[in-house]
């Protein structure tokens, strides 16, 4: 598995921790957790890497829905990835694009969040989705 996997989110905010849970379940590849300040996320990869970013999303879909976005050429859809910090992954990716620091390939996997209450665990549909995404990445 030659990829760099980046999990974005806060494990203390319920389903916001989905991306972090995926990264924690993966072994044998380069993984990183970004819990705040995705601004200079591009420092985690080089131009020749294949990158996957996993993050919780709020698109209005059913909790646990998994969507994949190829952001190498196209920005993430606006405001789907609501970050609790000023510069979320969408901004981090666009900053990388503006600075010519995009990797060879970059995919963002969004897991629709349900419960973002402080201090709660992942909700059952999101646990399911985390398993699904982890399996997909581990077998790639």
């Amino acid at each position: 598995m030659p990829w760099i996997i980046i999990g974005v989110g806060n494990r203390d905010r319920g389903d916001d921790g989905a991306g972090v849970a995926v990264v924690e379940a993966l072994t044998g590849c380069a993984t990183h957790v970004v819990d705040a300040g995705a601004l200079d996320m591009f420092n985690l990869w080089s131009e020749t890497d294949d990158v996957v970013v996993v993050d919780a999303m709020r698109s209005g879909a059913r909790p646990g829905t998994v969507r994949s976005f190829d952001v190498r050429e196209t920005p993430l859809p606006g405001e789907t990835f609501a970050s609790t910090h000023s510069f979320g992954p969408a901004a981090g990716i666009e900053l990388a694009r503006a600075l010519g620091r995009m990797p060879t390939s970059i995919e963002v996997i969004g897991i629709e969040a349900g419960d973002l209450t402080v201090g709660v665990n992942l909700s059952p549909p999101v646990v399911q989705a985390v398993h699904e995404v982890t399996r997909r990445l581990a077998s790639a």
Binding site: D40, A91, E94, L95, A98, L99, G100
Partner: peptide, 20 residues
């Protein structure tokens, strides 16, 4: 800052290095 970075990438690259 993203639009700023597109026009003045060198400035923003230096800023990020300073912040780092």
């Amino acid at each position: 800052a993203i639009e700023l970075a597109a026009d003045l990438p060198e400035v923003v690259t230096h800023a990020l290095r300073l912040k780092k």
